[in-house]
């Protein structure tokens, strides 16, 4: 365009320069876990306010989108629903009675005590991973709010993931269903340890993630068994519910079991999360 004015770098040379820069970025981040530094601070100041706004618009539009139904469907639904309301209001009374009983029991439950001992802070998801290969998301709290890398994130009483990057007012969380995620878990009832790894394949296919290396000599673990984070995990605090066993079977080595697990959290409709401010302390 401005070839008449001043020297212009030929595009082959420009390609080489940019290529070298990106390779350098890769090497530096591989060695030092550098992830943006100053550029990150600038970009978060620019993007985060808009993202949280558009995210709200998106959730409103999509909920309206789902509400659109034909009148016939609505009438049909109405009659079945009014029948349901009657039976449900009966049930509700019963459940309210049971609920007070349940809260008493939960207080006794050791796990619940562990949960409430952790210091927590609430956060809202403002953006999701930019492509289909990763399961990461951005939350609206960062180092200014006391968030640090490796803090655990939970929601609906189940484990969501791990903070992998923090900016001033945002942080990136890698979900346990991400293909690169590995969590050391254990069975709540028997104490057998296992490894829970995220899997893009089984997650999109069946909403399940993988269990491997489960040592279970007596074949005591059945489907529906709750799996929590184990004591030996080096980044996750113990006792957080990961999910429920879907299917396990004995491996070829006849020692360990492996199979699939249903995560406790509904990752598709996740909006608000809690970040546990207590970090697991490890020897290193």
């Amino acid at each position: 365009m401005n070839h008449k004015k001043g020297p212009k770098i030929p595009s082959n040379i420009l390609f080489l320069i940019l290529f070298t820069i990106s390779i350098l970025f890769l090497l530096v981040s591989y060695v030092t876990e550098f992830s943006g530094g100053v550029i990150g601070t600038v970009s978060n100041a620019v993007f985060v306010p808009m993202q949280s706004g558009v995210e709200t618009v998106g959730s409103v539009i999509s909920s309206e989108h789902k509400e659109r139904k034909t009148i016939k469907e609505l009438e049909k639904e109405n009659s079945t629903l009014s029948k349901k309301v009657n039976s449900l209001s009966n049930q509700l009374n019963q459940i309210q009675l049971q609920k007070s009983e349940l809260t008493d029991l939960q207080k006794l439950y050791e796990l619940d005590q562990k949960y409430s001992n952790y210091k927590k802070t609430g956060a809202t998801i403002i953006a999701r991973s930019s492509d289909n290969w990763f399961n990461t998301f951005t939350i609206n709290k960062g180092s200014k709010d006391g968030i640090e890398n490796d803090m655990n994130v939970i929601a609906d009483g189940g484990l969501v993931g791990l903070v992998v990057k923090t900016g001033k007012h945002y942080s990136v969380v890698r979900a346990i269903i991400d293909d690169s995620s590995n969590v050391s878990g254990m069975s709540l009832n028997t104490g057998n340890t296992c490894i829970i790894s995220g899997s893009l394949e089984t997650m999109t296919e069946k909403n399940r993630i993988k269990i491997t290396n489960l040592e279970d000599k007596n074949n005591a673990i059945k489907s529906g068994e709750p799996i929590v984070t184990s004591n030996i995990s080096n980044k996750f605090v113990p006792g957080l519910l990961i999910g429920y066993v879907d299917k396990v079977k004995l491996d070829d080595n006849e020692i360990t079991h492996s199979g699939t697990l249903t995560p406790a959290v509904d990752f598709k409709h996740l909006q608000n999360v809690l970040v546990i401010k207590t970090k697991k302390e490890t020897a290193d």
Partner: peptide, 16 residues
């Protein structure tokens, strides 16, 4: 660059 800043993964992959 923008994509790399938003995913907390290896920095530079999206740039490349």
């Amino acid at each position: 660059l923008v994509l790399d800043l938003s995913t907390g993964l290896l920095f530079g992959v999206h740039i490349l």
